[in-house]
């Protein structure tokens, strides 16, 4: 498998009559930051949730490292290896920022509470939230809450991070602090799969952009290729015309 962290082959998912994913395949290598873009309702979030089986795929296979995980019985063990950050943060409402980061270490990794506390503090410091360790989720801004949720996932030392539209529930002035943390993670070599429409972030971080529509990846390329394609004027059919059309709609 070499340095391939994640391999997805023919992943499909149907909700009632609607086919949300139709045979999605791709590979993620160590240190990759792949970003999925595309219209809403096109299966991006479902794809991420199928990877760690928060949603069970109907068919297809996923390998995490050398392990085929679509049929793994120890799904909790698999999820420990894949951090996930949600659009609505989903911080545990009854726990402080520190408690949110600590609980996975204590309950899942069985770390002694004292060690877990120190480790959780260092993870909070990594996202610049150590000053807010004693605050409850309702006392945090959206950006702060999302940074805590990133720390909560990072604390589990995952092999790959899945970000499901991490800034789309945030006011524009709060997205920057979250994207900054993600940029730092990417430049630090963290392997990540991101669903995001923050194109400045996408262009600066993505190793590959995958444009999804109708439950399939219709176009894929590096940010450079997409920009070049847009700028080129050879008269040949554009390789990324659907991606570009979508981005133009985004720009509004």
């Amino acid at each position: 498998m070499g340095d391939t962290i994640l391999r997805v082959q023919g992943l499909s998912k149907r909700f009632d009559s609607e086919e949300v994913l139709r045979g999605v395949s791709f590979e993620v290598k160590k240190g990759d930051a792949k970003v999925f873009i595309g219209p809403s309702g096109t299966g991006k979030s479902t794809l991420l949730r199928c990877l760690n089986r928060l949603v069970e795929p109907d068919s297809g296979q996923v390998w995490l490292g050398d392990d085929e995980i679509t049929h793994a019985s120890d799904i909790d063990g698999v999820r420990r290896r894949m951090g996930m950050v949600f659009q609505n943060f989903y911080l545990f409402d009854h726990l402080t920022a520190l408690g949110n980061v600590e609980i996975g270490l204590v309950k899942v990794l069985k770390m002694p509470r004292h060690d877990a506390r120190g480790f959780a503090m260092s993870e909070l410091a990594r996202v610049g939230m150590d000053r807010f360790a004693d605050k409850y989720p309702a006392e945090l801004s959206g950006g702060q809450a999302q940074r805590v949720s990133i720390a909560r996932s990072l604390a589990m030392n995952p092999e790959i991070m899945l970000f499901d539209e991490p800034t789309s529930a945030l006011d524009p002035e709060l997205t920057g602090e979250v994207l900054e943390v993600m940029k730092r993670l990417a430049s630090g070599g963290m392997t990540m799969l991101v669903v995001s429409h923050e194109m400045e972030f996408v262009y600066s971080v993505a190793s590959e952009v995958l444009f999804m529509e109708g439950g399939v990846i219709v176009e894929r390329g590096t940010p450079g290729q997409i920009r070049e394609d847009d700028a080129s004027d050879t008269g040949a059919p554009k390789q990324f015309q659907r991606t570009r059309a979508f981005l133009r709609r985004l720009d509004g």
């Binding site: 063990g77 989903y90 589990m156």
Partner: peptide
């Protein structure tokens, strides 16, 4: 209790 609470816990690897 918000459904996301259970989803987030499961995503951390809790049974």
């Amino acid at each position: 209790v918000r459904s996301g609470q259970l989803i987030a816990a499961r995503s951390l690897g809790m049974g």
